[in-house]
Design a binder for these strands. Structure first.
Lengths: 252, 252
DNA sequence: CTGGTCAACTGGCCTGACCAATTGAGGTAC
DNA sequence: GTACCTCAATTGGTCAGGCCAGTTGACCAG
């Protein structure tokens, strides 16, 4: 049943093992897990380690921990789980491709629904973005606001959230490292122009145009990205202390 | 309604506090956090509690814990968080609408790329689904495999993940409780028929047909849903950017 | 200046204990 | 007999202190 555990980030291995038992159905949905103390004994680890593993599963949404009662399986499939350790799975290009497909559909839909208020909101992000092209952090924020703002026009919270999540994924260490090389006032101004084209198409109610403009924008992003791919790691940023990305710090 | 407190667990309060400091920029991206022992002292809690909070943030992808070195801020936006009892899950209706938009675009794209192997994979999920319409859990699994299988045809890991995540969202306690009332062998057989229509359109390379079939499938899902419990969601319709309290049941 | 060693961090994990919430069995009043 | 109450066992939540292992940078021999 429960087998002892090996090495390397113990609580994560414990989490993996329990996650596997849930996915395989060995632990059915709704079922109560053994008590923390029992789990610790059966896995030959200490209770704090078991607790840490269970907290991981709780954050992932797989189990529900109820004080004084027990730990219950709430669903079978490991859902989201933010970035952390999945960089080896999805590369920047893959991400941009996915965004192109999804955000094009959103832009297309938004073109038929936009009201003056919505356009005003987009304009706000555009002017804000134009004023901070030299601030790497603030401009990213405006960029994000523009993309989620389009999703907001459709009026669906899920779309807004998914759009934001995909945007945030560029913040993985590996991605951010690359981005720091090709992002600059010049490229941001290009992106801003493309944003304006999208905004205009949506404001005009031109669904096909909005879709095309969004596709062009994300395609260009991809292009700007690949052009600076050759010189991966040439310099370090201000607070960087010579730490290579070493893309496997927490991969399991 | 009764107890808005929920008696927040300590490590979650600590996690919230640190998360806030990151979001506000007080802790910049790339910066190293104080050592666990120092954090424990500054926050007047024990080190295990700090550790548990940091593990939460690590799973969420906000920080990167490096053994022997320290804890580093990776990114600023909280984003995802699957959320066990996180009620901010959008309503079922909203979710299906988002899925319609995104999965239609995916189906459209898949129709132009499907190879025999891909179709065979879809067929496998269809036969499997047909054999277990009476098993509430197994049929859900086959359903999921079909939808992610279509995303897999496009060959983009991000799309597969997003599709699976949106599907899994129906597993929230609130959603699952409602679903148990309208899901049955009959409705599953209807869904299976709609799946077959999607599969046929993709196999035929008919992009527009695949898109239409997927839209029909998710629209029908929505309809089946609202016919049994639709009254509860009659208020939220398209274009409705309301934020329904919809406080998810912490316990069922 | 170069290369290697080592000691002071830092996180990883453990033992053992006590507190607080939940829950159900058993007792009491009606 | 039923309804309510009490209370103790069970379970998660938190704390304290300690040792081990990996990381890092200063220091010293060459």
């Amino acid at each position: 049943m429960f087998s002892p555990v090996e090495s390397r980030r113990l609580y994560r291995q414990v989490a993996d093992q329990i996650r596997l038992m849930i996915a395989s159905g060995e632990l059915a949905v709704g079922q109560r897990l053994p008590a923390e103390r029992d789990l610790a004994e059966q896995l030959s680890v200490s209770r704090p380690t078991v607790r840490e593993a269970l907290i991981v599963l709780e954050v992932e949404g797989l189990v529900n921990i109820r004080m004084g009662s027990g730990i219950y399986v709430v669903r079978q499939h490991a859902a989201t789980v933010a970035g952390a350790e999945r960089e080896p799975v999805e590369g920047p290009f893959e991400l941009l491709q996915a965004r192109a497909l999804i955000e094009c559909a959103i832009a297309e839909e938004a073109a038929g629904r936009a009201k003056p208020d919505d356009i005003a909101l987009l304009d706000e992000t555009l002017t804000r973005m134009g004023g901070v092209v030299n601030d790497a952090i603030a401009v990213l924020d405006a960029d994000r606001a523009f993309h989620t703002g389009i999703a907001a026009i459709v009026g669906n919270a899920t779309l807004i959230r998914v759009t934001g999540e995909m945007f945030d994924m560029r913040m993985t260490p590996y991605f951010a490292k690359l981005a720091s090389h090709f992002e600059g006032p010049t490229t941001w101004r290009s992106a801003l122009d493309e944003h304006r084209a999208i905004r205009d198409a949506i404001a005009a109610g031109d669904a096909a145009g909005a879709k095309a403009a969004m596709r062009a924008h994300l395609t260009m992003s991809q292009k700007r990205f690949s052009e600076s791919f050759g010189e991966e790691f040439s310099g370090e940023e201000e607070r960087g202390r010579n730490k290579r990305p070493s893309k496997g710090t927490t991969k399991t």
